[in-house]
Design a protein around this nucleic acid. Structure first.
Length: 208
DNA sequence: CGTTCGATGCACT
DNA sequence: GTGCATCGAACGT
């Protein structure tokens, strides 16, 4: 399990280093786990796309708390999105988990997403931030859970990531110029249109 | 391949 | 009342 110090760092570093790590959720229905393959950074009140942009509110309170905490919220009235709070207490920032490669509990994931109709392939199961929370069974009741020791944790299982790409964040209408989305290059569980994925690649493991 | 559009609930003005 | 850190079906090219 990743120590709190892992999250208590610059958010872009955490976003990159979370790639290859494994998110695990333990529920009464069973255990699900998946390797993180795509993330986005949301950094501070000066980032117009960050939920902290309006200043402290009831909803975004977890962003202002200690790092290593899960920030979960409902968006579009339909999807739960899960973040890992980063930086330091009083400095609101987080990493949005956008896609996983399923590792454990694939059958349970399929069941949870069964309402979607057609059968889903392995790489579709946790592709997209709303889809992965549904497959993992993550809801508002997971908000504020401690990722350093709770039913929702992130582990290092020794996976080494060779190539990382950076590009603009997806699905926002402001600050689209900041390349704060990162993903494992060429990984088939990464979200977004396949064709534009190549166009967005800014290079190898470095950002700027 | 691409774009458009409806579903749906909550926080915030 | 407005606006989302989305998704997938339905269309057009």
């Amino acid at each position: 399990m990743l120590p709190r110090a892992f999250y208590e760092r610059p958010t872009l570093d955490v976003a990159r280093d979370l790639l290859g790590k494994v998110m695990v959720h333990r529920t009464a229905g069973g255990v699900t786990a998946g390797m993180i393959v795509e993330t986005e950074a949301y950094i501070g009140e000066d980032d117009p796309a960050c939920h902290a942009a309006p200043g402290p509110t009831t909803r975004n309170a977890p962003l202002y708390g200690p790092p290593g905490i899960a920030y979960v919220y409902l968006n579009y009235g339909i999807h739960y999105l899960v973040n890992a709070v980063t930086e330091a207490e009083g400095h609101p920032a987080a990493v949005l988990i956008r896609a996983l490669e399923p590792i454990d509990g694939l059958r349970l994931m399929s069941t949870r997403r069964a309402g979607d109709g057609r059968a889903l392939s392995r790489h579709e199961l946790c592709r997209g931030p709303g889809n992965l929370t549904k497959a993992m069974g993550i809801t508002l009741s997971d908000n504020r859970l401690d990722l350093v020791g709770s039913r929702l944790v992130i582990e290092d299982r020794g996976v080494r990531v060779d190539e990382v790409s950076w590009g603009p964040r997806i699905g926002i209408r402001v600050a689209t110029d900041r390349p704060w989305r990162c993903w494992i290059t060429h990984h088939s569980s990464v979200s977004g249109p396949h064709s534009s994925r190549a166009a967005l690649q800014l290079g190898k493991t470095r950002r700027d």
